[in-house]
Amino acid sequence: MYNERVMKEFQNPQNVGEMADANAVGTVGNASCGDIMKIYMKIENNIIEDVSFQTFGCAAAIATSSVATSLIKGKTVEEALKITNAQVVDELGGLPAQKLHCSVLAEEAIKAAVNDYLTRYVAENK
């Protein structure tokens, strides 16, 4: 059902876990749909210095979380906002049709975390 790349990423996901000193957190999805993605970021000087995730979901949800967080590590906030679900799917070499929503969730989780950062930034600099 999944290609080797997806299975490899699922078995050995990168950037897993809570981040104590995160200054941006985004959570999307809900348990009743079977998917929750929570992305933590440490952003300094507009650069995503560190990123991690916690995911409740299927193998595809875990693999997309891993790939999406790897894609934005070290990138600027603007670059991270340009990441699309299609890029996440490409990076994984494809996903089964019924699993494409996982990649959408990853894109949304990144945006949610960045928005959290921007909201805090605006609040702090008022």
Binding site: M7, G34, D35, G57, C58, A59
Partner: peptide, 28 residues
């Protein structure tokens, strides 16, 4: 945790079972 990820992990360990999870059936 979600059933399909348990199922896939067990399968990688050579263990076959099945899941009541929506994700393994393709429905929501």
């Amino acid at each position: 945790i979600e059933g399909e990820s348990i199922l896939m992990s067990l399968d990688l360990a050579g263990i076959a079972c099945s899941s009541g999870s929506a994700c393994s059936s393709g429905s929501l």
